[in-house]
Computed example of a mutant assay.
Amino acid sequence: MSVLAAIAVLAVLILVHELGHFVAARSQGILVNRFSLGFGPVLLKYQGSQTEYAVRAFPLGGFVGFPDDDPDSDVPPNDPNLLRNRPVLDRAIVISAGVIANLIFAYLVLALQLGIVGIPKELNYQAGVLVQPVNQESVAYQAGIREGDIILAVNGQELPASDQSTPLLTKEIQTHPNQQIELKILRENQQQTLKLTPKLGADGKGVVGVALSPNATATYRRPNSPFEIFGIAANRFQQLFVGTLSGFGQLITNFQQTAGQVSGPVNIVKIGAKLAEDNSVNLLSFAAIISINLAIINILPLPALDGGQLAFLLIEGLRGKPVPSRIQEGVMQTGLVLLLGLGIFLIVKETTQLTSQLEWVQRLFQ
């Protein structure tokens, strides 16, 4: 049931994205002849006055279809309500609306979670620093550190029960590239000592390939007003959005160190299933995080994504005429093949390396 809940969340996020495109088009009078949730064989469909609505077998996908791309459409090629015949700005609104819908949805989900769970009041700190998911190729994993471990001391220095423990440990790691450090960890009430040598990162600092979080639990209180909920939700949305952008920036500038942290469908569903199993409200956190990631990925100027289409529109606006269709089709088809290849690679990789990498999501909102 938890796996189905996670898949349902992903299906909702895709539905929100496609609804953004659909509403933006219909509100401008642009013709839309298909709206589909999922891909593969059609399970259910309904023919409206203008649009065919369908649910397909595999829910992790979807599309909005326009008569422009339908060779069987009887709409005249010069119809002003065809998407391709609209001004650049109208088309840009339709293409970007999916991304905007995902961002708005993420913010509303964060507000809903605060309304249900309450406002974090304070953190109750315990000694040490909690280890978040460890990549199997990382220095930390190879040294024996596992997700859920609590690091109690570094180089003989105890990590206190305060908000200073995580910065202290981070500093020790970053200031000892290519130098061995000693860690005392707690795992299932058993203490042990491990030694590892941080690698030299691109920025000249030591890295071990692990994320850290305070060893703390949060207490909550009831919100004073809806305005407080929306204000705190805005702050959390900003933190998540900036953090996600930073993560994509590191993937570009420091690909070797961060590529292993990229997750595909298997790992994403796995994370959502674990959260649903622990506490169904955590699925709201999951939905917000994935929705923001989906928005940022789609706005990247890559072929076959919304950002790629926006890039073509920008070029069209600058040169005063569209990029030739054969060039657009060639770029989009190449990009689609590459994206499908990446998706298949991630699925295979994660299916053969299903390690526990989930607890950290629960702590993002503490």
Rank of each mutant, 00 (worst) to 15 (best):
L15S: 07
Q28K: 03
F35P: 07
F39V: 07
Q47G: 12
V64S: 11
P67N: 15
D69H: 06
V75Q: 14
P77E: 05
N85K: 11
P87V: 04
L103Y: 08
A106P: 13
V109D: 14
L123M: 09
N124C: 03
V129E: 13
V134D: 05
Q136K: 13
V139N: 10
L152W: 00
A153M: 07
N155K: 14
E158I: 09
A161R: 06
L168P: 10
K171C: 02
Q174F: 02
I181A: 11
P198W: 09
V207Q: 10
S225K: 01
G231M: 05
N235D: 09
R236E: 12
R236A: 01
T244G: 01
T244H: 07
L245I: 08
G247K: 05
G249Y: 14
Q261P: 00
P265Y: 15
G272T: 01
K274F: 14
D278W: 00
V281Q: 08
V281H: 03
I289C: 05
I289N: 04
S291T: 01
N293I: 07
N298E: 05
L302E: 02
Q309C: 01
S325V: 12
G330A: 08
G335N: 04
L338W: 00
L338M: 11
G341Y: 03
G341C: 01
E350C: 05
T355D: 12
Q357V: 10
W360P: 00
Q366G: 13
